[in-house]
Design a protein around this nucleic acid. Structure first.
Lengths: 248, 248
DNA sequence: CCAAAAGTGTTGATGCTACACCCATGA
DNA sequence: TCATGGGTGTAGCATCAACACTTTTGG
């Protein structure tokens, strides 16, 4: 049997992470198949967000970092708190309880969770060979249905927060490679906003700001005219942004 | 000696509330002088946000409501979560520990707090006779200095969130009476934004939207031309707001 | 030469800023 | 009649949405 939680774990507070990634076309979310992750045999294919109870001497942000580094190997991930989720019944669905009884010292304890969202460049995340890491998967954001616990609610809150941030802050660049084309940036924004941004106006607005620095590099291996690549210059952005800049 | 906390209280999770009010001129915050509130004798005049540990069967939002209703008598207060604050040392300043030892069963327990902010019309809050409620006070937002625990951080986060919300959502009306003049609305926005909004342009923009319905009532008892009063019509606002409306 | 995406320009409407002055009222 | 805030008007500039066509490359 699996070793249960250690003593310094706080039984009442957990952290869950919504990790967004972008593959050039679609927005993705990192999900965990909990039965596989925890190596159980309870016939449960429920998907959940990666998360864990916090340690008693650990800051909330650090707990979130710990979870993400454990999953992806990446350090210094862009991370931001979504908020606390504490409905008294949030762990009480029967399926969820089965899993908790298998894994927790106090399966019926009241647990408040603190949600975080992260943005990572999907190419920096090495998908480990199937079988070893089958319990982790990049799921299309658009087609996520039910998740375990209240994780769908956390995901919905995360996307709202992301959209909101995207409006004024340069977080989109976290999801792209260091060099990117304007149209990749456009696709990203358009996808996340689920909406109809005009491609031509978007391009013009971005270029006018001056915080995109053009490089001498172009896309390679594409079956059409290769686009010029740009980098994001934070210093320039900070100037522009004082002037109440908006991305869309 | 004061009765200590009851058994069903969760020792690891609390809720703290930032209550903003507006008196027509200045933005105010509701603060508590903790020694007086808890009827202690520990020579401690530290100001803190109103807050409490949550009960184990109680939703976070409900805990915040409970605290506010207890303080002000008002039910159905506008309330919104700010986020969780969980630095491991957040209760460990010596002054804070003195107070905790006097009041808590587990004064050194790790406590994560969830912050909320509320907006109330200052006139709906009956200030009780001094002596009885001296421990509660409306403090000018501008002149708040240090607070106990990490409450200054929570307050700073709250004002940022308020400013952000103010931009797109009609929360300002929560701080005014049902009927208000355009210039009262202007003063409120200008005060909260700490900034220089043009009064005339603000008025024009607000009136153009159509979600302010003019009444036949005017200010009374003012030593100058009485302003016409308006009400806020949410239904109209929802129309306008689909169209990406911004307040400033 | 075809497909597919990159890249470019214009026009009209709208909104915003930055202004200064008169009005109505109570004291 | 004076002080105080209430209320109005305009002109120029900047921004934005809406829209279609040409260019460059790989296959």
């Amino acid at each position: 049997m699996r070793e249960k939680i250690k003593n310094q774990t706080n039984p009442n507070v957990s952290v869950d992470c919504v990790v967004f990634g972008f593959d050039g076309t679609d927005l993705k979310v990192l999900l965990v198949q909990r039965e596989l992750r925890d190596n159980l045999n309870i016939n449960d294919d429920t998907l959940v967000l990666p998360g864990d109870l916090i340690n008693d001497n650990e800051d909330l942000d650090d707990a979130a970092s710990r979870i993400l580094t454990g999953l992806t190997g990446i350090r210094n991930i862009f991370l931001e708190q979504i908020g606390a989720f504490g409905h008294p019944q949030r762990l009480m669905k029967e399926r969820d309880q089965v899993w908790l009884r298998a894994i927790r010292l106090e399966p019926s304890a009241r647990v408040i969770t603190v949600g975080y969202f992260a943005l990572i460049n999907i190419k920096n995340y090495k998908v480990k060979p199937a079988g070893f890491a089958k319990h982790i998967l990049w799921h299309d954001y658009d087609t996520v249905n039910e998740l375990g616990f209240d994780h769908k609610l956390i995901l919905d809150t995360a996307i709202a927060k992301l959209r909101n941030k995207l409006y004024r802050e340069p977080v989109g660049f976290q999801l792209l490679s260091k060099e990117f084309s304007i149209n990749q940036l456009y696709t990203l924004y358009n996808e996340i906003m689920g909406g109809e941004i005009d491609r031509r106006n978007f391009r013009r607005r971005m270029l006018k700001t001056g915080f995109l620095k053009e490089t001498d590099n172009f896309q390679e291996g594409v079956p059409h005219k290769p686009a010029r690549l740009y980098t994001f210059v934070r210093k320039e952005f900070d100037n522009v942004s004082k002037n109440n800049f908006k991305f869309y």
